[in-house]
Design a protein around this nucleic acid. Structure first.
Lengths: 231, 231
DNA sequence: TCGACGGATTGATAAATGTCAATCCAATGA
DNA sequence: TCATTGGATTGACATTTATCAATCCGTCGA
């Protein structure tokens, strides 16, 4: 792994403040692998053998039941996923696949659990990360239960515009059908939601959205820090 | 607190295996209080000052935005709630109110954080509990995104029949409008969902449901351990 | 015993969302 | 350059869910 990537890894909340030997060993024990797009990394109901860290590319966490499927989360660098299953030595609740070419660091679950017991700072970092993930999931549930599809899209636009550092515009870098699934709707419905937002300050043209009237968009979206806040 | 209640508290996953002095001090530091029904215990966006433990009664966790409200979870004895906010010293994402007369043990957040840093077993128990809560939230999100209202009700019936130890029947001990909100629908829609299930092996009469044809109910519900499993 | 109250149910209707089918369109490779 | 391909969009329609109003019904207190 390149030095700059090791440094980026160090920046993970999960590795914040942990002892150098712990970090070094965890990384050394990990397998760093390239994957092409569309590869299934883990399958729901499999035992959690590895903690996965996305070094490069985009990974989709998804879930399915009774022939239906939905996107649960998109993980980008540098982000870890499926921590909870690894910790309690349980099966995965979600499946994961690469959306793009991706580089993934896979750390054996057993090694994570061992260091957790030995390095108090690591344990503490894990607790913080778990609490964050938990709260994120609660927010996602609120988002889904309390808002319509168009409102979810509007709030997503506001969040992503901020993340991308372009208050007046959003560039979509994933397929719209994946975005639709993440936002809990069908692709057709997403198209219509975009059309609805055209009347509320957001003009869509392909993968580019111009937020021409931020105030109108916010009025429609009703952003709520207890749902949309980054934390 | 009565001895049997202290014993019940000890049975909480959160206090499993922790040192006696830790447990004793946490309980001693806590305020044990009675509340009548309908009392708001905590409000979303307030700072998390206490870890709450339900000793007796039923507590509803709920969330609201833009004039809409939804029930997130029902907490029964002996159960702790809003652990994640307490740990990271953040605001609550959910509000809580008593549904019945209730007895609540409130442990100062600061005390929880202090013992967490000093008692490795406590920290470990917290991690396990957090992971459990996280996974529970993921399951709730899958339930909401992947199922229709009637399916959610059917699966809820199957779960609760097992919990109540009566495979052929379910007794509802909360208001139906609260149940409707928990399952992500309106009270009217819940009534109709019950009517639908009458054709799939579940006969409702007031607060009592007879599961006359378990196989038919399961066929309709499509229970999935990765959503409905107790874990 | 009788009202009164609040939640539950039912019916009618509207809004939101999903499904199916037919293009449209942009990226890709021959 | 052009044909192919897969995702995106649009229209028509079905299903699901919510809303509004009326009524039912069990509980509780006078």
């Amino acid at each position: 792994m390149r030095a700059e990537e090791t440094a980026a890894l160090r920046g993970l909340r999960l590795f914040e403040g942990i002892a150098e030997p712990t970090f070094t060993d965890l990384v050394a024990a990990g397998y760093l692998q390239f994957f092409p797009p569309g590869v299934t990394l883990i399958r729901a109901s499999d035992p959690a053998d590895f903690l996965h860290v996305v070094i490069e590319g985009v990974v989709e966490l998804y879930a399915a039941t009774a022939g239906r499927e939905t996107t649960m989360e998109l993980v980008r660098p540098v982000g870890a996923f499926i921590l909870a299953a690894v910790l309690s030595d349980q099966v995965y609740l979600q499946s994961a696949r690469t959306l793009t070419r991706a580089r993934i660091l896979m750390i054996p679950a057993e090694r994570v659990r061992r260091w957790m017991a030995q390095d108090a700072a690591f344990m503490s970092a894990i607790t913080v990360e778990l609490a964050r993930g938990y709260r994120q999931a609660i927010k996602a549930l609120k988002n889904q239960k309390l808002r319509t599809a168009a409102e979810r899209l509007a709030n997503w636009l506001i969040i992503v515009a901020a993340e991308q550092g372009t208050p007046g515009a959003v560039e979509i870098d994933i397929e719209k059908r994946v975005l639709a699934s993440r936002l809990g709707m069908t692709p057709e419905n997403l198209s219509r939601a975009f059309a609805t937002l055209a009347g509320h300050g957001a003009q869509t043209r392909g993968t580019h959205i111009d937020i021409t009237d931020p105030a109108a968009l916010r009025a429609f979206a009703n952003p709520d820090p207890l749902i949309d806040g980054p934390e």
